[in-house]
Simulated scan of single mutants.
Amino acid sequence: MTGTTFSRAELVEAFAGFEATVGRAAATRDWDPWVDQYTEDVTYVEHAAGTMRGREQVRPWIWRTMENFPGSYMTSFPSLWTVVDEARGVVICELDNPMRDPGDGTIISATNISIVTYAGDGKWRRQEDVYNPLRFVAATVKWCRKADELGTLPDEAAQWMATYGGGAR
């Protein structure tokens, strides 16, 4: 329990703000407003990267993750569904992570479950991302192979494939 109970309406409104901020960050590639929606002492659990404590541990991680391939090719992070737990001040959602069109209209993505805990005043005090990293690798490999087939594979993606995906097709 958080010790503070937030109404469903407040949680829904705060999560709408969260999604809008994430949407703007994806569109502008400015990740600072995304980080700033967390409390100074946020705990961010990212199963592949580990647990970060405080905004200033989260900030360099999100910039590095989202400004390098494959994160730099993810275009948005819409929630596919949400569950609001008023008693705990938590919103649980499944986020989609679609990648750019490789050149023929194909949409390739992977999803994760995010659990965000509200602190009040539009801020979030905890986030945990749960996913299978191999699904993200498989989606990225699929995207790279499609882009290679279409002749649109950028150098950074070819380098990623050589390192993590078994090389380009």
Rank of each mutant, 00 (worst) to 15 (best):
G89S: 08
E56S: 13
N112F: 06
R125Q: 11
P154Q: 03
M52C: 07
V141D: 01
T75D: 08
E46I: 10
E149F: 00
W61N: 01
I108K: 08
I92K: 07
D101Y: 11
P98Y: 09
G166R: 10
T163A: 12
E67T: 11
R100S: 06
G105H: 08
G105F: 09
E56R: 14
A139K: 06
P98N: 09
N97T: 11
A157V: 03
C93R: 11
P78F: 08
A138L: 07
N68H: 15
E56A: 06
A87K: 10
Y118D: 01
M74F: 12
V90I: 15
G54R: 14
N68L: 04
N132G: 03
G54L: 14
F69T: 04
A49W: 10
R100G: 00
A119N: 08
R88P: 06
I62C: 06
R126A: 02
M99I: 04
G166F: 11
R55L: 04
D96G: 13
E128F: 05
P78T: 11
T140H: 03
F136T: 05
Y131C: 01
E56H: 13
C144I: 02
Q159W: 13
W63A: 02
A49E: 12
V91F: 13
H47S: 15
N112Q: 11
G54H: 14
